[in-house]
Amino acid sequence: MHDIPTDTSFLEMMDILNEMLIEKGEEPVTFDHDCREGICGMCSLYVNGHPHGPATGATTCQLYMRRFKDGDTITVEPWRSAAFPVIKDLMVNRNAFDQIQQAGGYVSFQTGGAQDANAIPISKEAADEAMDSATCIGCGACVAACKNGSAMLFLSAKVSQFALLPQGKAEAKRRVKAMLAKMDELGFGNCTNTGACAAECPKNIKLSNIARLNREFLCAKCSD
């Protein structure tokens, strides 16, 4: 490709490529994208061997072409994981993530029955840490980065958020067992503590979430 302005984002470069293809009467390259500000978790390109490309702490849509040199060859692939089958070109099916959440990623609480929001004080530290875990955008970069195709970082972020908050305590044991069982069932691999997931995570979700997940799981199993 020629004449790509340096201020162009990686996905805008893909737009330009697609416009070129359409002009030639060819089909454009299909890829997932939506908010283009790093929060929806839709974009999912494996660029030059890294999920979301060479920038750290950023999604593909937050990657700008000035990161590359004139004449570079850029390799773009879809997420690589057995649990994320390719739909078309660079677009994959991440429905497995929804299924893991459906297995237990919630507080069983019915609309209308809540007590006053300030009835349970929660320490600022716990709330902030829960917020850090809850920042996960569910993009799947952790799975794509993992040599085992494990979803442990994704899963542990949700388990941690609820483990750190009093609202999540009542169902903690059931939740962690159900979510892990679902992850295994869906064909994700297991965790060998390599840490590639946390290194590539666009939202800097910490590896310590996995440690907390393991502890939650052990406690749950021990009390079986």
């Binding site: 507080v107 029955g113 809540a114 929001a117 300030n118 600022k124 709330a127 829960a130 609202q167």
Partner: peptide, 22 residues
């Protein structure tokens, strides 16, 4: 006001003061 109660009950991690309140 119900919305805030609802969201806290769901485990939404709103910003808090040192005293633990919202």
């Amino acid at each position: 006001n119900n919305i805030i109660d609802q969201c806290v009950a769901q485990g939404v991690p709103f910003a808090r003061e040192y005293g633990g309140l919202l």
